[in-house]
Write a protein that binds this DNA or RNA. Structure first.
Length: 558
RNA sequence: UGGGGAAUCGUUCAACGGUAGGACAGCGGACUCUGACUCCGUCAAUCUAGGUUCAAAUCCUAGUUCCCCAGCCA
């Protein structure tokens, strides 16, 4: 390992041991094998980080990106493209090892012929229903197919004709001849090939025979000389079958290792459910910033680094659990605190007028871009008589320990001056329209010579210079930690959070944001971390709030 | 006794017969030109019952709970 301080886990233990015993000639070669039938999500990220992380951390380690595209009914090029983009964006490199299971179809078929010839596989003429009915149950053994004892010659003839397209879809399957009484259902003569007259996104109409997962997956790993084939827990009792095929073939056999899938609270990660959210338009697409998809997280503003660190800290083991999304936010804040440029943005503006400040006067004030990073430098910000401040930064009847503006109270305007509130202007209904203050010219830069202190520091923007912006503030997509915990007769959809998207129009942001580019990230002072959304145009900047800053004051109010 | 897995602070990961520790979350405080950051403190766990041992989260026995498997899905 290149970094001994990172957490170890049972998979690394296995690999280290295999290295010690030279089980795989000191090679470490993993793979990430997505099926291109949906978008990648945070759960996949854990697997990607694990597999590519292992390749990165071991001397000479490799990790392949391989599409497990054995089912043309569900798979599409769109998903291949998005997956490639997402893995790349996450920061991983498969070099020249981008593979497709479909590239091995010929080879797989030859292997099948070999099993037929050696009497390990047979063609079954039973219907799907018949096969299901004779499989037995969890507690009762299955019944052998009447076609189970055909000769290798007959099986070979039938298999050849299946491949040639002589038989109807669903009329026959090739089955492994194992044990219909096995307590492991996977070993009860599992199907290897089904007949499907479907066009495949890569092989077109070349095949009408498509391999099943159990048959295909081990072959893919074997062909690529994978050493450690890491998958999720539900494949644990497929391992005997994985091994059986490769042993029967006398082929190179990787070690399958299973770990618990990563779940995250307040969201769902089943492909079916994500698909449902998109198709039923509960969200605006796969990359909706509320989605746990990689593309959604990306658009929301999360970085590859924060996702990687999150996955590392969550860790790997064999118990299923649910991780706290707050940890991702923590990882993100940690990263951004060191790197994000600070800017001032007023999300809910109210006018503040400095009555003793000259009209039509503009002062340029200097502000640091990132107090955590002196190298980030400073910028100039225009200060004028009329400013916008945050509506919530003024209260007529402030509670105790309220540091912000109130009648007669003095606060600091960030990097500018101390101001004291003298009066407010209201409309007929009593709504505050303007806050009138006086400033102390001797506090320029936000510091007083006489040592007097103010507790509150407010952010602001000049009315004349502010840019218009729309800010999208997100909450959890679901109200419950476990969205599947729904009332009787209802499903996860009933737990959708109606306030998961809150659009703030009429926000005012500082001038320096004029040339902000899509995906660029900022800290809006005292608010949180935001990034520019692709919906921005030359008239209106659109920001997504990735995560808010921690706010111990707001917490006290609760 | 169908088979296969898993049980440690609220969550998550460690401890591999020798002081149950870290992170996140929570709570309290200090600091602060971001009520941020940072720092300090604090809360809090070995599924149960027996057994082996000087010593058990760890080994043994018996239970309990949870997850996965009856697709021509992966």
């Amino acid at each position: 390992m290149s970094d001994s301080t990172t957490a170890t886990n049972f998979i690394l233990d296995i690999i280290n041991n295999d290295l010690k015993t030279e089980k795989y000639d000191n090679r470490v070669h993993t793979r990430f094998p997505p099926e291109p039938n949906g978008y990648l999500h945070i759960g996949h990220a854990a697997s990607i980080c694990l597999n590519f992380g292992i390749a990165r951390d071991y001397e000479g380690g490799k990790c392949n990106l391989r599409f497990d595209d054995t089912n043309p009914i569900k798979e599409e090029q769109e998903f291949v493209d998005s997956i490639i983009q997402d893995v790349k964006w996450l920061g991983f490199d498969w070099e020249d090892r981008l593979f497709f299971a479909s590239d091995y179809f010929d080879q797989m078929y030859e292997y099948a012929v070999q099993l037929v010839k050696s009497g390990h596989a047979y063609v079954d003429d039973q219907t799907g229903d018949q096969i299901r009915q004779t499989r037995g149950t969890l507690k009762e053994p299955g019944i052998e197919s009447p076609f189970r004892n055909r000769t290798p010659e007959e099986n070979l003839d039938l298999l050849t004709r299946m491949k040639a397209g002589e038989f109807e879809e669903g009329s026959r399957v090739l089955r492994a001849k194992i044990d219909m009484t096995s307590p492991n259902m996977n070993m009860r003569d599992p199907a290897m090939y089904r007949i499907l007259y479907r066009s495949h996104h890569r092989t077109g109409n070349k095949w009408c025979l498509y391999p099943m997962y159990d048959w295909a997956h081990g072959l893919e790993d074997s062909i690529e000389k994978i050493t450690h084939s890491i998958c999720t827990l539900e494949f644990e009792d497929h391992r005997p079958l994985y091994d059986w095929f490769l042993i029967a073939l006398g082929a190179y056999r990787p070690q399958q290792i299973e770990f618990a899938r990563i779940n995250v609270n307040y969201t769902v990660t089943s492909k079916r459910k994500l698909m449902q959210l998109v198709t039923e338009k509960h969200v605006q697409g796969w990359d909706d910033p509320r989605m746990p998809t990689i593309s959604g997280l990306r658009r929301r503003g999360y970085t590859p680094e924060s996702i990687q660190i999150f996955c590392e800290r969550v860790g790997i083991n064999k118990r299923d659990g649910v991780s706290d999304i707050a940890l991702l936010d923590h990882c993100y804040r940690e990263e951004m605190n060191n790197s994000a440029k600070r800017v001032m943005a007023v999300l809910d503006p109210i006018k503040l007028i400095i009555t003793n400040y000259p009209e039509n006067h503009v002062e340029m004030l200097s502000s640091e871009n990132n107090p955590e990073d002196p190298e980030a430098g400073t910028r100039q910000i225009p200060f004028t008589r009329e400013l916008y401040i945050e509506r919530t930064d003024f209260m007529e009847d402030p509670p105790k320990k309220y540091f912000r503006l109130a009648l007669g109270k003095e606060v600091r305007l960030k990097q500018a001056y101390y101001v004291t509130c003298e009066s407010v202007v209201k409309d007929k209904d009593g709504n505050i329209l303007e806050i009138h203050c006086v400033y102390d010219p001797n506090t320029k830069g936000g510091w007083s010579q006489d040592g007097r202190k103010v507790r509150g520091t407010l952010h602001w923007v000049s009315v004349d210079h502010a840019l218009d912006a729309e800010v999208r503030v997100y909450e959890h997509l679901f109200l419950k930690e476990n969205p599947n915990d729904a009332e009787e007769g209802k499903d996860f959809i009933s737990n959708l959070n109606p306030n998961s998207l809150n659009i703030l129009a009429g926000c005012k942001v500082e001038q320096s944001l004029k040339d902000a580019t899509v995906e660029e990230k900022y800290q809006f002072l005292r608010h949180g971390y935001f990034c520019v959304d692709k919906d921005s145009n030359s008239d209106l900047l659109v920001f997504n709030r990735t995560v808010p800053l921690r706010d111990s004051w707001a917490k006290k109010g609760k």
